[in-house]
Write a protein that binds this DNA or RNA. Structure first.
Lengths: 253, 253
DNA sequence: CGCAACTTTGACCAGATTCAAAGTAAGTGG
DNA sequence: CCACTTACTTTGAATCTGGTCAAAGTTGCG
């Protein structure tokens, strides 16, 4: 948990016309008008290292970000140090919306890998709602989707056994990674530690280890090379009793 | 879990100018323009009994509702019957947004008491985004708030002990009830059973009962009269280590 | 090489589940 | 109005999942 300050990279800036996300089947394409607007809405790019804290719980001045590349996670910490990971972010995900809308962030975000983020000014979100109702709708779509994911996590933590939970989480992460383009048949390692898994599932690290061992023994996952490799996503989903909702082209900003 | 069909009440219709919610300090007031628009957006009112299912998991044609009076809850059920309650709804809350935005509901909603709901056409949400960016922003605000609540629930189920969880939930419900005007010093019963508490906290009903007993013994809550009466909300919040975020005037539709 | 972070394993303990059954309260039909 | 049913609450006992404690093994890196 390095507490690195994000580096504001003066360096390159991807313009939206060449946004790598737009090329993927999974994402909706902008029309020219929208693209121009988003291009203007974007104020810069942020590059961070693994372990950097992008957003801090309690912040009032957080920016709004779209993750362009890398893995991150959202979490909350209690006063006595107990940590709960709420969700993970992959390319295309929006970070910091809560702060832009309600004024204050109530969770933190940390990088699991080097990240590239598009930076938007939170003060201009109102303007976006006025000028581009279609983009405003997309933002709401993204918020509704996050809510749906949290619903699923809640079901998982509340009602599934440790074994089912672990299977669900890894199927979920693998799927997200695949669709967002960050996992490929070559690079298919989800960069998490067992501590992350434990803090996501609400389990102790020891029990998490023993649970993951069972999945390894069944050759459904492999551990190492800095993370987890999912070997049989479908089998994992089946163990969890999780029906992956199929997703058409999703919007992003 | 009565599977009652919601009764479409041909009866009375509250016009927005006299909306009971607008009178409460907790809610933002509309300006005239917004009020007229929402008035037109509203297609009717729905009255249901306790136990009625308002929204069914998997529905594609769900309406969008604002809860005007009563208590309800959102939940998911696994194939084998395990149920997880995701959140509760009190007056001012929006129900069915997920369906309006992403096209399909992924959870159900059931009434805990007789309800009155404002009904909106889901097809006209796009129109609302185009014509009233301020109202669109409000909807997004509400979605972001729901997300924040789910984050808190996740922390609770994942990292708090049974005792802390129960304390958190009841403090949370009491607070929501108070602010929304549905709980008063006279009518202060939260209409839930211990089964609801169990399904919210991810506990068995037996252990839930034993846990609630401790809270009763400490005279922090009372059970009976069709639900739970919170006697000392602050003490409950303290047990849970929960800092209630203060909320200014919140929007509703 | 040696440290630091992470993973693995074993032994013991505790919180929570399951099973079983009885007590209570409210509602229904005779 | 009472007997009966149904839904909900309460309690005890046995069991088990998952937590805690302790320590060793691994891996990557300066």
């Amino acid at each position: 948990m390095k507490d690195g300050q994000p580096n504001t990279a003066g360096a390159g800036r991807t313009d939206c016309a060449h946004c790598p996300l737009g090329k993927l089947d999974h994402f909706r394409r902008f029309d020219d008008d929208e693209q121009d607007y988003v291009e203007g809405f974007k104020t810069g790019e942020l590059i961070t290292e693994t372990g950097a804290t992008i957003i801090v719980d309690g912040a009032h001045n957080a920016h709004l970000y779209t993750l362009l590349s890398g893995w991150a996670f959202r979490y909350k910490i209690m006063e006595d140090g107990r940590r709960q990971i709420l969700n993970y972010a992959v390319p295309g995900d929006l970070l910091g919306l809560q702060g832009s809308i309600t004024g204050e962030m109530q969770h933190s975000v940390e990088a699991l890998s080097p990240l590239t983020l598009c930076v938007f000014e939170r003060d201009r979100v109102n303007e976006l709602f006025s000028n581009h109702p279609d983009l405003a709708f997309d933002i709401t779509w993204i918020a509704a989707r996050e809510e749906r994911i949290l619903d699923e996590h809640l079901l998982s933590i509340g009602r599934r056994s440790a074994y089912e939970r672990a299977a669900y989480l890894l199927a979920f992460l693998n799927r997200r990674g695949r669709l967002s383009g960050i996992l490929t048949s070559k690079h298919n390692v989800i960069p998490i530690t067992q501590q992350h898994v434990a803090d996501t599932l609400g389990l102790s690290i020891v029990h998490t280890n023993k649970t993951l061992k069972k999945l390894k023994d069944r050759k459904l996952i492999a551990w190492g090379d800095g993370g987890c490799r999912v070997i049989d996503e479908n089998q994992l989903a089946e163990i969890a009793g999780w029906e992956e909702t199929e997703e058409k082209r999703r919007p992003f900003i």
